[in-house]
Nucleic acid binder design. Sequence first.
DNA 1: TCAGCTATGTTACTCTATAACCTTTCATCT
DNA 2: AGATGAAAGGTTATAGAGTAACATAGCTGA
Lengths: 169, 169
Amino acid sequence: MEHTPIACSHHDHNHCISDALEAARQLCVGRGVRLTDLRLQVLELIWQNHKPLGAYTLMEMLAKANTRRVAPPTVYRALDFLLEQGLIHRINVLNAFIGCPSPTTKHQSHFLICRACGIAIELDQPQLSQQIIGVAQDAGFQVESQSLEVSGLCANCAGNTEHDGHGHE
Amino acid sequence: MEHTPIACSHHDHNHCISDALEAARQLCVGRGVRLTDLRLQVLELIWQNHKPLGAYTLMEMLAKANTRRVAPPTVYRALDFLLEQGLIHRINVLNAFIGCPSPTTKHQSHFLICRACGIAIELDQPQLSQQIIGVAQDAGFQVESQSLEVSGLCANCAGNTEHDGHGHE
DNA sequence: TCAGCTATGTTACTCTATAACCTTTCATCT
DNA sequence: AGATGAAAGGTTATAGAGTAACATAGCTGA
Ligand SMILES: [Zn+2]
Ligand SMILES: [Zn+2]
Ligand SMILES: [Zn+2]
Ligand SMILES: [Zn+2]
């Protein structure tokens, strides 16, 4: 149930993609929603990148992969679906999207975002969510969703401060 | 083209604005930075609204108030200055800006945002900031800034939606 | 005064996202 | 199989948010 942070550049990423896609397929079957070719392709591209990906970058990738023009509404509709199903998260501070490693478990959007390499590490800290809910309740506020975006330097980049070409692309 | 009036009329908002502006003046004098007419005007408009305000809404207000055209870079530069000095915060989820009630104290951007009335309540929870830093450190992450944006219903709006059947459009 | 810096004005542009409308695809019912 | 209605995707146009690049004005300190 714990998802390993993705800061390490030496994990089997192909495996990690295929796992996520298979999980997404099963999740959609279970919910009776349609993971169409387009939606699957968008999810795959997002996972391949392993970093938050902008909608327009995604559009270019789709256009290249499909040899057809892909207009903004097309990709935004796919993104909306994936967001609704919890298969991806939106990183507001970057206007970008990233795959969720545990879409079956309901949780909030808590990320560590490295300003040097651009990686986004999803946190799995239910007690942090709970503390936030508590603080909100003290103010009479009824929480519906949380977005925590912590910016700074990841372990890799904090170590390599002499040069930033640490190659996590 | 119309800007919505102030949400909460139950506190002395004029006093609240003038306090904030006076604090800003002193803060800028103390730091040796220039709170120009434009910057002050932008800060005042943001405080008058008491809700997160988009840059383009602000532009329209400035244009009306000054009877002159105000282009995007003008307002964005003023906003950048105010952000740097900690006089306002940016609400990422809304692409909007709101005044900070305690600009002299260094702190993170933690907000409760009501989806019904649009109000944004700034939290003052240093121990929450600390816990977030702790969680990040456990992942070897070096925190530079935090953005916590909690969406839901404020105390006012949560109360008013309990009997929601009468269809008050 | 002059030079140099900071702030603002101006034009044009990029990036992000959505509205409105039409066509295709797909599951379901007859 | 054929009809049908809803969901998904295609297309065009536009709205909304933010920045680059360069010109001008205005303050500041020799
Ligand atoms: Zn997640
Ligand atoms: Zn990094
Ligand atoms: Zn503040
Ligand atoms: Zn409210």
